[in-house]
Structure formats: C-alpha cells, structure tokens
Design a binder for these strands. Structure first.
Length: 506
RNA sequence: GGUGCCAUCGCCAAGUGGUAAGGCAGUGGUCUGCAAAACCACCAUCCCCAGUUCAAAUCUGGGUGGCACCUCCA
C-alpha cells in the first residue's frame, strides 16, 4: 500500500504525478561525492536532501532501491593523489569512507548500492563502444568524444539550445582542437603520465566525467529507472550529458523518468570558498552543534529552495578570526531540544503510568501521521510536516501539563501514541531517532565546552542552594542563582530536584 | 552577454486562483517562594505599478531588488 504522490520533475518543470515503473517500487539514483578532501556542509546538504526523499518514500510505503555513486576516478582526485604520492583510487576510497562516516552523523542512511567508477570500467567501456558504433561518439587520438550534434534533444533539461551552448563555449575559447564541435565532451581520455589508466579499444585511458553516471544506474537499476537526483549545479553539464550518453545508446525513452534537484546552500555575507578559508567541514559542524541540528535545519526548508546559511566569524581583540559560530544551526538545535525535552517527558510519563491498554485516544493525536503523509505526497513538503510535529509537541505538553477533564487512561494512551507517532514521522525526515536523555546530555556537554562552564563549581553552588532553600533562606538561594546566571547557567527547580542547563542565548 | 529561479509578519519558513501553516522573537496571563520550563491568549493581506477574473500572495505584462548556472563547485 503506497500513497500516490506528486513531485517536481526538473525535466517537465512542473509537479507531476509520480508513477513508478513497478507499482510500489522506486529505483533511485543520486549523484554522490567525488572524494578528494573532507566532506563539507554542501555535501551534507545534498546528501540529507535526498536521504529525506528516500525516507519519505519509504514512509509512504514504497520499496526504495537507492543507488548513490562514488566518482573515484576524476581529475581533482588524481591531482591530489599525485601531490601526496598516494594511489588515486585508494585516496578516493579513504575520503569516501570519511564521507560515509560524516553522513552517518546526519542520519543519512547508507545507500543500497554504492558503485564506484574504478569497479565499473567494463560497463563504461561497453557503453562508449555502443555510442561509437552507432555514430553518437567519435574517437580522436585515444580520446573519445560525444557528438552533441547527433543528439537533437541536447539541452532540454537545462533549457538551452545547442547553439546557445556553442556560443557560450567559443566565447570562452574552451575549444579543444580535436573536438568536432566545441560543446562535444569527453567520454574517454587517453592516458597521460602520472594518471591511472585502464585498457580500452582506444588504448589505455580513463573515463571522462559524466559517463560513469550513465553506466552505473543501468548496471544497478536497469536501462530505465524512476528517479535521478542531484544538486541543482549538476543540471548542466553533468545531467545533460548523462541523458545524451544514455539515450544516445539506449533510445529516447530510456534512463531517468523523473529528475529531481535540490536547492543550493548559500552563505550570507561571505561565500564558502577555500581561498577565504571558510569551507566548513562536516566534522567541524557535527562537533560544534551536533549532527542532528543540521539535519533538523535542513528539513525545516523545502528541498528545492535555496537556503541562506549564517556563519559568523569570531574575532579576537586584534580582529583576527579565531573561529566561527553557526548561528542558524545553534538556533535549530534549540528548537530540536524542545522536541527531545517533550519526548523525555512523554517517555517518563508513559513508563511511570504503565500500560494503558488498548482503546481510544484523543482525535487530535490521530491526525499527525495522515497529515504528514499528505504533506509528503506534495513534492516532499517537509516544512509542513515540521509544522504538524510542532502541533503534536504542543498537544503532548498540554496533556502533560493539565490532565484534568481528560479520562486518565485516554490521556495516557494519547501521550504514548504521540510519542510513538512523533518518532515515526520524525523518521520520515531523519530526526528524533535519538534517546532523549542521551541527546540532552550531549547537548549540554557541547554547551559546557562552548561556554567553558566549570561543572564542578556549578554542582557545588547548586548543592549550596538546595541547602539554603531547605532552610527557607530564599535570599541566599536567589543570591546563588544570581551567581550561576553570571556563569551562564540556568536553573530548573522541579519536584524531582534542581536541574540546570547552559543559557544558550547566542 | 545567455538561461533559469526567487521576493510572504522583526527573523526563519509553508502556501500556484477562493479569501495567509508552523517556528523563533515580542506582549499579556496561568503555574512557581521567586524563577526557568510548559501551557493559554494576542501578534501579517503577501516588493511596486498596471491588467485578467465573481474571486489573486497565487495568472499576465512592466518595474525594482536578490540569487544561481553557462568555468569538471554538492
């Protein structure tokens, strides 16, 4: 049982009904990393976008086969490998492992298949042979180029004509003389000294960029498959070329049936660039605010929207940049904390009350899952799902606060239901899967570190205050609270005792 | 220069023809020894101009202001 859905298809430039090749099943290919350096936030943003789509499809009842490639044969990798004297495929494998480890911190699920270029050379060569044989491609001195003129539909995805592209290309004098047409692109590159190579009918060489993403989906999903995804920046030339290569070989109705592209992450103020020294690695972000905060931030936005990302440089007295603050992620983490606080309270309440048995729950609590389903069927509208989660959280807190007027068992069942359903819906977005106590403890540890809180001193002051309050010495108690406030610590008196948190006001 | 996208409350952000989701912040209140948390209440007519329509944030034209791609940058 799957729920019908509509999604925005970049090719048709409109939301269209999604009809998978096989009912109930989705074959999905997403362009993965070209690993030659640690993954940065942009990589994470893309991976999270499509992981959310994948999870949402599963939530809607689809059986998803998710293929995300690793492009491990590529110019930048080879250059980097030569710089450090390492085998390029090995270097890529190392960074690909790092990438997957980083993505796991953002709750990105491992793909079902993670094909690499280096292990798909025969399939790539086979595809190029087919293109040469049918006249779509031509070899020149050990290189092989795709003849764009032979593919009239070229430019359809990016909305450009071959002529427009040709003028753009010659303007910048990127004409490589052996090409018949400046917009033609390489399928196979003859081996150069210091580069990895594989044998081929055209001599030793290696695949060009693009061809792997035509060969590998076919190998793992078939000649025609449902969804192809990637960042907006990949529309041209990467995806345009993939279409030309694949349909040039297999025919006009083959390859991806739906094209999905996620919006880009933009940096307010300074752009992310290596020269400015402000590339933000996944590792750095996950350590600073926790991986789930970034995930939460991502799903608060629609996957197709461009997102502004605030990064604030921290400067010392001499105006030297000594660090960065991810304000928007810190704020997202605060919102996320509210969910875990509520979940913690629900869990405690449910455990304490025992099994409330089967029976009715408040109607309001039954809405969350259907509403989430409805939102996700409309082009994966995660922000609307988030609004429903907020409403569920408020309902739960209301029930926790005032139980009066509600049947005791119904109240308990409703809260249990909310705790369960919030996690199910959160699962569709890749959030709320952690143990609340664990999350809350981790978060406090992060803040303690960021604000350099002396925990031993805090504990001592709180103990002193407990004593003061015990003897109704409220003046002294408030005095101590004043001291703690000055340290950046906030107190929470509860029937179970006094807890504390770090004042997180930016 | 070419192509495409966007402009919604102080901030973030949904909403593609039927009369503005949600969050943060703010204000008032409940609770509390006082607080904090939580809860309750309040809090926008959608960049500008012109048009289409019974009806537009949503469609068309123009303007202004942002952004992206055309450079193997996710």
């Amino acid at each position: 049982m799957t729920t019908p859905l509509r999604l925005y298809d970049s090719m048709r430039r409109d939301k269209v009904p999604f009809e998978p090749l096989e009912p109930g099943k989705v074959g999905m290919y997403v362009c993965g990393p070209t690993p030659y350096a640690p993954a940065h936030i942009g990589h994470a943003f893309s991976a999270i976008s499509f992981d959310t789509i994948r999870r949402s499809l599963a939530f809607l009842g689809y059986d998803v086969r998710y293929v995300r490639n690793v492009t491990d044969v590529e110019d930048k990798i080879i250059r980097r490998a030569n710089e450090v004297g390492e085998d390029s495929v090995a270097l890529a494998a190392r960074f690909a492992d790092d990438y997957n480890r980083d993505m796991a911190r953002f709750a990105v699920l491992p793909p079902d298949v993670e094909p690499k270029v280096s292990t798909h050379i025969p399939q790539i060569v086979e595809l190029i042979v087919k293109l040469v044989e049918n006249g779509s491609a031509y070899p020149v001195d050990g290189d092989v180029y795709f003849a764009v003129d032979k593919f009239p539909a070229y430019g359809r995805l990016s909305g450009m004509t071959i002529d427009e592209l040709r003028s753009g290309a010659s303007d910048r004098e990127l004409v490589e003389k052996q090409k018949k047409n400046p917009v033609d692109f390489a399928l196979w590159k003859a081996a150069k000294p210091g580069e990895p190579f594989w044998p081929s009918p055209w001599g030793n060489g290696r695949p060009g960029w693009h061809i792997e993403c035509s060969a590998m989906p076919v190998a793992h999903l078939g000649v025609t498959f449902d969804i192809h995804g990637g960042g907006k920046d990949l529309i041209f030339p990467h995806h345009e070329n993939e279409i030309a290569q694949s349909q040039g070989a297999y025919g006009p109705t083959t390859f991806a049936r739906y094209w999905m592209h996620n919006g880009f992450l933009n940096f307010a103020g300074e752009k992310m660039s290596k020269s400015l020294g402000n590339v933000f690695n996944c590792d750095e972000i996950a350590n600073a605010v926790g991986g789930e905060a970034l995930r939460f931030f991502c799903v608060e936005h629609h996957y197709r929207s461009p997102v502004e990302f605030d990064v604030e440089s921290v400067r010392d007295a001499s105006n030297e940049v000594v660090g960065v603050r991810f304000r928007s992620l810190e704020a997202a983490d605060r919102r996320l904390e509210d969910f875990y606080k509520t979940l913690a309270k629900i869990d405690a309440f449910v455990v304490q009350g025992g099994d409330a048995g089967e029976g009715t729950v408040l109607a309001e609590a039954e809405r969350l899952i259907p509403e989430a389903r409805e939102a996700l069927t409309d082009d994966f509208n995660a922000p609307v799902v988030m609004s429903k989660l907020h409403e569920a959280k408020t309902l739960a807190n209301r029930l926790l606060d005032i139980g009066k007027g509600t049947d005791k068992q119904v109240r308990r069942r409703t809260l249990a239901r909310l705790g369960k359903d919030m996690r199910i819906v959160g699962g569709a977005l890749g959030i709320l899967a952690n143990d609340p106590a664990r999350y809350l403890a981790d978060r406090r540890d992060r803040l303690v570190r960021r604000c350099a809180i002396d925990v031993a001193r805090v504990t001592q002051l709180i103990a002193d205050r407990v004593t003061a309050r015990g003897s109704k010495d409220f003046t002294r108690a408030d005095e101590i609270r004043g001291e703690l406030t000055a340290l950046g610590v906030e107190l929470h008196d509860t029937p179970q005792g006094t807890d504390w948190s770090v004042q997180d006001v930016g």
